[in-house]
């Protein structure tokens, strides 16, 4: 029976080529916009992850600190669940590092009468805890210790960037939902037009004993096929976008050393499934309305 339904669905699509083409085109454009946005989100996410992986938290200690106080701070750091690893950097070692970084401009530090740098702990965080809010909470708890002068984790802008990214992501999801709703509406409209153009045929089918399921099944399949083709074309167009932005000069300009990648297979499957679901849903809404009336 399913083969018969699929054959009828394909025949209907052929008979209503113009409507089907319009529907597929609208779905394609919707999917192109959604998948291009997803491409942007995935790659910006990668970029932020790469920035975060290099993140170090510096805990600067008060001067003239006793060993016992230093050990208390060390104990607190050891107990913090966010910390993957840490090391103590004495002020002398810090100066050496500083000097090595200023190689060629050694005169800048040569005239120093005393080492201005404090003792410090350098912390590396567990990736799951590299969220800006959690880093800030850790920094606050360490700063509260009387032996800690300050906590620096550089790249504070990362938090602000992350907040903007979150807003953009939410806007993206909302836009995706709106576009999918547009696809649902368009497929629903196509189904309605197809049914109106075939109202006599539907009447005859009912008179010869066809069930509503027999009449509806090919239309559902048409909706899903239109969703699948529209989704496929939209994703193919998105591949072209990807090829453009991953081309040499653009890659270095936008990605800051991160290799731009296309959407992962699970995202592609999700977008195609969403597109087919939109086709099915559009058909369902339309049929429910028409068959009820």
């Amino acid at each position: 029976m399913m083969i018969l339904y699929i054959k009828r669905a394909i025949q209907d699509l052929r008979n209503n080529r113009f409507l089907a083409t319009i529907t597929v085109a609208v779905i394609s454009v919707s999917i192109l916009i959604v998948s291009d946005f997803a491409l942007f989100l995935v790659n910006v996410h990668d970029l932020m992850a790469s920035w975060r992986s290099g993140l170090r938290v510096q805990v600067y200690l008060e001067r003239e600190l006793s060993l016992a106080d230093r050990q208390k701070v060390e104990q607190q750091i050891r107990q913090a669940r966010e910390v993957r690893d840490f090391r103590f950097i004495s002020r002398d070692e810090a100066l050496e590092i500083f000097k090595s970084q200023l190689r060629g401009q050694a005169s800048i530090v040569a005239d120093l009468k005393e080492n201005p740098l404090p003792d410090a702990f350098e912390l590396q965080l567990i990736p799951e805890y590299q969220d800006p809010k959690q880093i800030e909470m850790l920094a606050d708890s360490l700063t509260a210790h009387p032996a800690v002068e300050s906590v620096e984790y550089g790249q504070k802008w990362l938090g602000r960037f992350s907040a903007v990214f979150d807003v953009v992501a939410i806007l993206g999801y909302a836009m995706g939902a709106l576009l999918l709703m547009a696809a649902v509406f368009i497929v629903g409209n196509t189904t309605r037009l197809v049914l109106y153009s075939r109202s006599e045929e539907v009447t005859i089918m009912r008179l010869v004993g066809a069930t509503d399921g027999f009449i509806k099944a090919p239309l559902y399949i048409e909706g899903v096929i239109q969703g699948l083709i529209g989704g496929g074309v939209g994703l193919a167009a998105s591949v072209l976008t990807f090829l453009f932005i991953s081309s040499g000069s653009f890659q270095s300009m936008v990605a800051g050393g991160v290799q731009i990648r296309f959407l992962p297979p699970s995202w592609i499957a999700g977008i195609l499934a969403g597109s087919m679901a939109a086709g099915w849903l559009g058909c369902h809404v339309s049929l429910k309305h028409i068959f009820k009336s």
Partner: peptide
């Protein structure tokens, strides 16, 4: 043939 398809006759 539509009648037979509608009543679920084997194709």
């Amino acid at each position: 043939a539509l009648v037979l398809e509608a009543i679920g006759k084997h194709r």
